[in-house]
Nucleic acid binder design. Structure first.
Length: 184
DNA sequence: GCGACAG
DNA sequence: ATCTTGTCGC
């Protein structure tokens, strides 16, 4: 999902149906979900300035979560925005939107635990490719203006669920199914 | 060996 | 992540 933060609207989108070739193993998420991200990315017409990943960036056992790894392959700035922690220690941040705490791992600050909405569970933000921690937090807070998750992440998730349902029911019948290359 | 563990 | 009913709060 390519989202225009100034117009507050979807600018482009694309999807891909890819068979999983790797199991989900904490610390190896990019090997499972990366291929699908890459194939869907080849179909979009508007290349974004930054990509927000549903997962970790630098806050990873080897310092390179899906945001860092795929960000490099795409050659585009990226940010890790996970709903839960993978590694690191932190103090619970304040309850207001914008309140944050450092996420430390091996004596290093690898990310931030940020409250994007007052009273909701915080997000685990960490730098991906070509982006600083401060910019990462700024980008996520700017994109999460309505709900807990950044708008593009929320909409992408919503679209994925919808497509998966439609796909699972149409795959049995002889009908065809849009490949996701349609441009808006 | 035990517990932790993005999606 | 997925399954899954009702329920709590804005």
């Amino acid at each position: 999902m390519v989202y225009d933060l100034e117009q507050k609207e979807v600018a482009d989108e694309a999807w891909a149906v890819v068979k999983t070739s790797f199991p989900y193993i904490p610390g190896y998420l990019s090997f499972r979900e990366g291929p699908a991200v890459l194939s869907a990315f080849r179909k979009i017409c508007l290349i974004p300035d930054v990509v927000i990943f549903d997962g970790q960036g630098m806050a990873h056992p080897r310092g390179a979560g899906i945001a860092s790894h795929i960000g490099v392959l795409l050659g585009i700035p990226s940010v890790g925005c996970a709903k839960t922690r993978l590694v690191g220690e932190y103090e619970e941040p304040g309850l207001l939107r914008g309140d944050r705490a450092e996420l430390r791992y091996n004596g290093r600050v690898v990310g931030a635990v940020v409250r994007t909405r007052t009273g909701v569970k915080p997000l685990f933000i960490s730098p991906g490719h070509l982006v600083t921690l401060e910019d990462s937090v700024r980008i996520v807070l700017e994109a999460a203006f309505r709900f807990r998750l950044p708008e593009p992440v929320r909409l992408a998730h919503k679209r994925a669920t919808e497509l998966r349902k439609r796909y699972e029911s149409s795959r049995s019948s002889p009908k065809k199914y849009p490949s996701g290359g349609e441009t808006i």
